[in-house]
Design a protein around this nucleic acid. Structure first.
Lengths: 211, 211
DNA sequence: TTGAATAAGATACTCGGTGTCTCAGATAGA
DNA sequence: TCTATCTGAGACACCGAGTATCTTATTCAA
C-alpha cells in the first residue's frame, strides 16, 4: 500500500553544509536550551528545536529516543555549576550563598528544564533513574562541603553530614518553585532562618530528643 | 460552509436514564478517581472518564473547563482527611503519626492526582493558585495543631508555630515522591529523626544562631 | 397533565504535538 | 573516485484535548 510521498518535491537545497558528530549534537543541545529558556519544557516542541538547530526532526530521534531524553542530554551538555563559597567561618553566610545560587538555578533555564523533567517523572516513574543525577547530585556536594568545614571548626557534629540534612534547603526551595511556579522574595532567608539554621543548632546539641 | 454531521445517525438510545446535579457530578468524580488510580494523571483521558461515568464528554466540559479543573474537583470530592492524633504528650510520636498519614496519602490515588496537578503547574504556572488549597491546606493544620499542643506544654516556643516549620516534613515527603516516584521504607523516620526533631530542639533553644 | 426550557448522552470534528517514514543529496572513508 | 552512511526536509499516522451539534430525557411552571 504505497503512500504518496514527496510528489513534486522541488526543494532547492542550496549546497547547505551538513554537520555531524559532536558539532551536530552540540548545536542541537544549544537549540534545546534556548527553546527551554524561551518557552519552558512543556511548550518546547521538537519541531521548534529542529528548526532552530537547522536539523531534521528525524535526526533528533535518531540520536535521542524522546523529548525527555533530549532534554536530559541538553542538561548534561550545560551542567550548571554551584560554586562553593570561600571558607569565611560564617556558616550562615556560606549556606546563604549556596542557597541563593540554587534558587537562581531553579528559576533559570536549567531550572525550567528540571521542572519539566519532574513533570515527566510524574507521568512515567521509570524515568526517575535516568534523571536522578540532575536533580540531586549537583546541589548536595557544595552544601556538604560547607557543612564539613563547619564540622571541622566544631560548630556542628559530624553526624550532621548526611545528604538528607545537607539537602533540606534545596528540597524546600525545589518544593516551593514546583508548587508556586516561582521563588518569592524572602523565601530563601525564611528557609535559612526558620529551618536550616535552627536545625543545625539542634543537631549541635546532639543527644536527647526535643523537649 | 455546512459541515456534514450525524449523517445516518442510527443511535438506539434505549430510554437510558439520565442523571443530573449532584448524582451526576458524584458519578463523574468517582470515575475520575478510578481512572487516576488505574492510569495516573497523564494517562487518564477525558474520553475514558466519560465512558466510565457513562456520560458525554461535553457534559464534562459543561461542568469543568479543563482536565485539570476536573481533577481538582474530584480531589475536593474525596478530600483525604488527616487525623490529628490524640494528645499523648509524646511529641515525636504524634508527629510520626501525622507524617505517616501524609506519606500514605501521597502514595495513594489522591497522591497520584496531586502529583499530576503539580506536573500541570509546571506547564502552566497560572494554575498554581487554583490548586493551592489541595497542596498546602490539608496537611499543614494537623501538624500545626500537634505543634501547638507541644508549645502549650512548653516543649517548643510559640515562634515555632509557622507554616514553614510545620510544613517541613510534608515538603520533604512530597519532594521525595516527586523525584523518586515512591517513598522508600524508612524515609519517614529519616526525615523525622534527622530533620524535624532536631529542628524543633534547635528552636527550643531559641536565641543565638548555630554554633 | 402538558409543553417549553434545560441539560444529558452521544459522536463527529478541529487542532496541535509526538514520533515514524521516506527520499535526495552531502559527507566521510577506502 | 566510488560507495556506504547519515543529514536535512517534510509528509504522514496517531493520539488526546477541547468544541460543536444533534437527539432526547428530565424538570418545572402553567
Amino acid at each position: 500500500m504505497p503512500r504518496v510521498l514527496d510528489v513534486g518535491k522541488e526543494v532547492v537545497t542550496p549546497g547547505r553544509r551538513r554537520r555531524r558528530g559532536e558539532e551536530l549534537r552540540g548545536a542541537i543541545c544549544r537549540a534545546v536550551l534556548e527553546e527551554l529558556e524561551e518557552h519552558g519544557f512543556a511548550a518546547m516542541t521538537m519541531d521548534a528545536v529542529a528548526a532552530r538547530a537547522g536539523a531534521g526532526k528525524a535526526t533528533l530521534y535518531r540520536h535521542w529516543s524522546s523529548k525527555v531524553q533530549l532534554v536530559v542530554a541538553a542538561l548534561e551538555y550545560s551542567a550548571p555549576e554551584i560554586i562553593v563559597p570561600p571558607d569565611s567561618g560564617d556558616l550562615r553566610g556560606e549556606i546563604h550563598a549556596v542557597l541563593r545560587q540554587i534558587a537562581a538555578d531553579l528559576v533559570g533555564p536549567s531550572g525550567a528544564a528540571a521542572r519539566g523533567l519532574i513533570a515527566e517523572i510524574v507521568r512515567s516513574p521509570e524515568l526517575a533513574s535516568a534523571m536522578k543525577p540532575f536533580l540531586a547530585d549537583p546541589t548536595t556536594p557544595p552544601m556538604l562541603e560547607v557543612l564539613r568545614r563547619a564540622a571541622v571548626r566544631g560548630e556542628i557534629p559530624v553526624a550532621a553530614l548526611t545528604p538528607r540534612i545537607a539537602g533540606v534547603g534545596t528540597d524546600l526551595l525545589r518544593q516551593c518553585i514546583l508548587i508556586k511556579g516561582e521563588i518569592p522574595e524572602g523565601v530563601v532567608e525564611e528557609i535559612l532562618d526558620q529551618v536550616v539554621v535552627p536545625l543545625l543548632r539542634g543537631l549541635a546539641l546532639g543527644g536527647a530528643p526535643a523537649s
